[in-house]
Every structure is written in C-alpha cells, then in structure tokens.
Design a protein around this nucleic acid. Structure first.
Lengths: 141, 141
DNA sequence: TTTGGAGCAAGAACTATTCTAAATATTACA
DNA sequence: TGTAATATTTAGAATAGTTCTTGCTCCAAA
C-alpha cells in the first residue's frame, strides 16, 4: 500500500482494540460496521469501503472481518447457507431474518433470561457461544 | 435406473410421507438418517447410501435431502459455514457442537420452556423457524 | 539502516451446493 | 394395456462465497 495523504485518519478509532492493531483497513471496516446496523455481508462492506480506500481488496476485507471476529470486536452471523453477515452488537442476542424484506434484526432476550438455564445441557459443559436465529415475517405496522 | 432384484425394498418405509412420494432413493436417505443420529452431511449420506444404491449420485442425495426437508420430514442444520447436516429429530430442539470431537448433539429445552416467550419480538410477527446452536466443549465424563 | 514480521493486493484455488440436459421411471388416462 | 405427460435420477458443468498463495509494502525493533 502506498501512503496517500488524502487518506490520513480523521475519526478517532483506537490504535488497538482487544490486542488487535487497528490498521487503516481494519479501522474502515470497523467504523462502517459500527454505523451500519444492517448486518452487511463481506461484499457489501467491500463495496462501501472502496469509497474511502479505492485500492482495498475483497480478500483484505475478509481478513479484517476475520481478525475483528477473532478478537471479539464484532460477531459473524450465519443464516443457513447464505453469505455471512457481520454485526457490531456484542451483547448476547439473537437474529430475526425477515423473509419478506430480506432484512435482519437483532432480537433481545426478555430481562433476566439466561439461555443456559433453559437448555438441558450436561453439567460442566463449557459453552463458548450461543446463536439463536429466527426466520419469519415481520408484522405489517 | 434399471430394476435390480437384489434391491427390492425390505424394510417398511411408507409409500408416501407428508405428501412426498418415497422413491427408492428417498427411502434409503430417510432410513439412513433415522438410524444415524450423528447429523451426517450430504456427502456422508452419499458415501453410506452408495452401499445399497451404487449408482446413486450426489446430486440425487441433495435432491432427496431437500425434498425431505421441504416436506418437514427431516431438518437441515447449519453450523457457521460448515457443510449442512441433516437431522431426523423434528421436535423443537437445539444443537450443541462439541469442538473437541466435532460431534453434534441434540439439546432439549427444559420442560415448559417456550422460546418465543423469552424473546423480545414485535407482536404479530410470524415466526416460521427457530434455530439454536451452541458451540463449546463437552465435559469429560 | 537493516532486518523481520505483520499486513495487504490480486488473482488463483477450493468446495459445498445448485443447475442443466438427457435418460429413466412413474403416473394418468384413453 | 398402451401411450402421453410428469416426476425423478444421473453425470457433469457451473456457481458463489470464501480461503489460499505469492509477492509486495509497511512498520517496528535492533
């Protein structure tokens, strides 16, 4: 990457998050995801980021997303075999996939609910991740 | 497909389930899944079924699995971007993916639990499917 | 300034799955 | 029963999201 003066960092993203060095590319990916709450795909991130970093490659977007996921900065969300989507909401929550619009919405648990208590899991089992996905149609408002 | 006398149907699978005509191939796929509780992938089904139907093709296995899923005879289970797995258990349940062995286990809900009641979903929303997947390590017994 | 490692870009490769076209099997019905 | 219409199967090609490879660039430490 050649240094382009027009691409000096402007907004304040920390140099490092959870031990991950925030390079220019990772910053852009992260910043875009934080603004966008639509659970974009890697390709959608790529298209959008290109406006700021015209030379970025799709592979780099995948690399950035993977790095961010592995450092628990964002979450990867999968619906069936559709392209992975990415989500900056780290709270434990589920995802509702609206079949009519194709949009994805976060689903919170009702207060005081701990999913682990409701499942019949053998004792001492280590649960590293729980994923809840719903599919259906949002009511017309 | 030529009729092979050695392959006359022996076990009792109905001619039709949920309106789906049970062809020889579908029978084999279904029968294998019912016996196997290990959530096999399409390819695993294919390899195993070939013993009984040497001429079956992978595409047919996919066709059969899709038909069975669409007629609510089996369920398709996805873990992240791994190959889809198939499950003959139609009860509402989740899946636990044991990272150490790679095996998948059904997870029941504790009695009286209705997932829908625990999630913060807008009223009148039609939920067609709920999927719960856990990832972690089973306790050493 | 040199060196080593991390990160990036471009495109090739991979792989689960779907599609296509032709062959075969089954059903409907004259 | 015979024949047309429909459904299913097969084999292989195609697709698409993702990962891998290679060479280059950047940055930090010595």
């Amino acid at each position: 990457m050649t240094t382009d003066p027009s691409q000096i960092q402007i907004t304040s993203v920390p140099e490092e998050i959870n031990g991950l060095r925030m390079t220019r590319q990772r910053q852009e990916v992260y910043r875009f995801l934080m603004g966008e709450r639509n659970h974009p795909t890697a390709n959608e991130v790529f298209m959008r980021i290109k406006e700021a970093l015209p030379n970025i490659s799709l592979a780099t977007v995948y690399n950035c997303l993977e790095a961010l996921v592995q450092h628990h900065i964002i979450r990867q969300v999968n619906f069936d075999r559709e392209p992975s989507r990415y989500c900056p909401n780290l709270e434990e929550h589920g995802h509702f996939h609206d079949e009519t619009t194709g949009t994805i919405h976060d689903v919170k648990f009702k207060p005081g609910i701990n999913l682990r208590d409701l499942l019949d899991i053998p004792p001492n089992t280590v649960i590293k991740d729980i994923e809840i996905t719903l599919r259906g149609q949002l009511a017309a408002s």
